[in-house]
Design a binder for these strands. Structure first.
Lengths: 108, 108
DNA sequence: TAGATGGTTCGAACATATTCGAACCATAGG
DNA sequence: CCTATGGTTCGAATATGTTCGAACCATCTA
C-alpha cells in the first residue's frame, strides 16, 4: 500500500532555536540518554526502541520522547501507524560542535 | 598572617564517581553555566564571582555552588574567610573527554 | 574580644518534572 | 466496517528542584 502522509506531526524547534540548557537537561536523564544512544546508528521505529526498564507505560515513554523532541535532540515523525525516531545530528553539530559526540562517547 | 588551614571543607566526589547525568544536569541551568564560564580562565574567589542577576541572595548562590560541587564540576575550598572556586578540568576531561570544552564553546 | 565579612545550612514555600491511567486518535489489516 | 496496534494528550498524584530568610560558623581586623 501507499505510504500515508502523516496527519499527526509534532512540533520541532528550528535548528537555530535549540537551547543549550534544554539539550543538556534532556540528556541529563538516564532513560532519555539511553534512547539517544539507541539512535546513534540511525533512525529506529519507536516501537523497536526499548528502554532498560521493560515495564515503562507508553504514556511515560511518550513523555520522554517529548522532552527530547522539544529540546531539539531528536526528530519524531509519523510513519504508518508508528513513528520514526532519529537524532538531529547535523543540526546539533552545527549549533553545538562536538557536544553530542562528547556525551555519547562519555556514556560508552 | 599565616594562611589558615581550612576547618570547613565541603565534600567533593572522587573523579571516578562523577556521574555524567549529574554533570549535564548541573550545566543545564543558565546561572550555573554562567558560573562555570567565569571559572574558565582559572580559579576565582567566590566573593568575586558575580552572577547576571546582582540581587541573588547568598544562600541561593551557595546552593548553586553546591549543585556544581556535588556534581563534580567545580571545586570549592576555603581560604581565609572566603572560598576559592575552580573548575575540575583535568578530572572531567579524563572522565568525559571533550565534554566540558564542547559546553563552554557552545555557550560562547 | 567585638564587629564586619564571607560563607554554609536549615526549613518552609513555591515551582517544576515525572509518572501513569484513562481517554482519545490514526492507520493497517481482515 | 471492525478491531488491533502504536502512539499522543490530559489530569492528578507524587517527587524533585529552587528560592530565600534566618540562624549559624569561621576568619580577619581593630
Amino acid at each position: 500500500m501507499q505510504q500515508a502522509t502523516p496527519s499527526t506531526d509534532l512540533p520541532h524547534p528550528d535548528a537555530d532555536e535549540i537551547q543549550l540548557g534544554a539539550v543538556l537537561f534532556a540528556l541529563s536523564d538516564p532513560a532519555r540518554l539511553e534512547i539517544v544512544a539507541q539512535l546513534r546508528d540511525g533512525p529506529i521505529e519507536m516501537a523497536r526502541c526499548h528502554l532498560n526498564d521493560p515495564d515503562v507505560p507508553k504514556s511515560t515513554k511518550s513523555h520522554l520522547m517529548k522532552v527530547l523532541r522539544e529540546a531539539g535532540v531528536i526528530r519524531n515523525v509519523a510513519q504508518g501507524r508508528g513513528r520514526i525516531l532519529s537524532l538531529r545530528r547535523e543540526e546539533l553539530e552545527q549549533r553545538f560542535p562536538g557536544l553530542l559526540d562528547a556525551v555519547l562517547n562519555a556514556r560508552g
